[in-house]
Nucleic acid binder design. Structure first.
Lengths: 121, 121
DNA sequence: CCTATAATTCGCTATATGACGAAATATAAT
DNA sequence: ATTATATTTCGTCATATAGCGAATTATAGG
């Protein structure tokens, strides 16, 4: 029950659902997710941590950068079903569609470039 | 997105998950759910209302009694998948198994009898 | 009509959560 | 070694939520 509740609660926030979508079949470093959401680094990092703790995200550290992506085939059936449910439910959603545009813009920039811009704020 | 978030948030509480389970393939009146959870009537009613608002529960009024049950085949695919996910995930859960015992005990009493007992508290 | 009662709504309190900026940590580059 | 920088952790605030009891609503029965 605890594991299940951790997953549901991790999904019970709109920004975290948007994160799941932008990390579907793609890995992004934290600064890219920060740019995508438009939230503070600390807030974004917390969201990622909650999703990771619930096993909805895999993470990989590469030097100074940390990359996240949605859980792969190693994930438990409960997690797999959760992701399938979310992705099925919001395929046509306005916000998610808009997010796809935002994400493309973010992807056009290299992480290095992005972090430099964020440092200037 | 709003509908989806309403569903996820409705599921993001352990007592509400327990309610979903006890109303699976079975309709119960509010006083039975009160007894099942052991929470105050006002609290229980709020939980039921949240689940109903999210379309996870159907309700039917019969005189003074209100009966709830999990959403039937008319429900949207998103709701159906949500229920299938929950029910699949917790089939073996300790709490849910214990709840089955509790529920049997509750079902042995008639609603009328039950309400009378609750009134005395 | 009036009373009893099943359920809901309201007002309140305690705790949980999301947001931020500042400080800390960890790694790369000089 | 020292500095720069990507990320996380910590402290704080504002808002959201779960819980209760009291008051209200709606229906059944006298």
């Amino acid at each position: 029950m605890r594991d299940f509740m951790e997953i549901v609660k991790a999904m019970a926030d709109e920004n975290r659902i948007r994160i799941l979508y932008c990390l579907k079949d793609r890995e992004l470093c934290v600064c890219q997710v920060i740019e995508f959401l438009g939230l503070a680094p600390s807030t974004t990092s917390k969201h990622l941590s909650i999703l990771h703790q619930a096993r909805l995200l895999d993470s990989q550290k590469k030097g100074r950068w940390v990359y996240y992506r949605t859980a792969g085939p190693d994930a438990s059936p409960v997690v797999q079903q959760a992701l399938a449910w979310v992705f099925g439910a919001l395929e046509q959603d306005k916000q998610i569609q808009a997010d796809r545009q935002t994400l493309e813009a973010v992807l056009r920039m290299e992480p290095e470039e992005l972090c430099k811009i964020q440092a200037e704020r």
